[in-house]
Design a protein around this nucleic acid. Structure first.
Lengths: 136, 136
DNA sequence: ATGTGGTGCTTGCAAAATGCAAGTACATTC
DNA sequence: GAATGTACTTGCATTTTGCAAGCACCACAT
């Protein structure tokens, strides 16, 4: 594996973030945890992007190592693990919303007058609170 | 090459963004253009992360194809190309700043009372205008 | 006009990461 | 105790990356 072995390429802040979640999969897991109420390995596997099991296991491990995600044993089934965002993970919400806003604006395959943008523009804080309230 | 060949893995907005800049290098180039005043192939190569020439060429091509970056011939030297952000690229500024804010907050190797965070918290719009004014 | 250096790449090849299918381990349920 | 659910691990082919070298074009000095 040894993707970001140990020493950062630089001490730049953008680089710090990229070495944490700079790949095609990691933020999809964050998305599923943050916006879709998913919590288990099996639920992440169901997402439309079709992540494979080895990559998912690797990214969950990484996210845990970085303190963005933590897992607990499910109360009803000891072989089932529940993943959730830590506060460090929840702090990615503004990043996720700005990414979403950018995509809504620039994805040509989408409607230009998207309700997300109006709401995001006028009630950002309320939007964030509503999302955070639903977690845990 | 054929990294994101043609058909998106899903029509999710987070995924749209990840298929555009979801890797370890692309946003470093955006950073160099947006915050460091860099404009040429050679200048990007100098950055501390040490991108290699083939990857840089590939990412610049991709960024152009996605309409995030455009290039022009330098007025003083016809073999020199000047890269710059398009408006779509400049629209990544909020994303870049939120990523920076997250990293400042969570990079344990950094000072906790970073001036970026106070300024970002109190004068976000002014900060963005100042950055955009320096471009082009 | 020729050589030297600047600029932006391309190429070749080894190493690493990814993607896919199958298999494993443990817990619960019947 | 057999079948199912859950979370992975393993093996292997394909793709991407990283490194070093080479190439093509332009500019400038001799």
């Amino acid at each position: 594996m040894a993707r970001n072995s140990d020493t950062p390429r630089s001490n730049c802040r953008i680089n710090f973030a990229l070495e944490t979640f700079g790949d095609k999969w990691t933020l999809l897991i964050v998305r599923d945890l943050m916006f879709k109420g998913k919590r288990t390995f099996g639920e992440f596997l169901e997402s439309k992007e079709k992540i494979s099991t080895n990559i998912l296991a690797d990214r969950l491990k990484r996210l845990e190592e970085h303190g963005i995600v933590e897992k607990t044993v499910a109360p009803d089934n000891r072989s089932k693990l529940l993943y959730r965002l830590t506060s460090k993970g929840k702090d990615l919400l503004p990043v996720m919303l700005e990414i979403t806003a950018w995509s809504v604006k620039h994805d040509a395959t989408r409607n230009t007058s998207d309700p997300f943008l109006t709401m995001f523009g006028s009630a950002k804080e309320e939007m964030m609170s509503a999302i955070l309230d639903k977690l845990d």
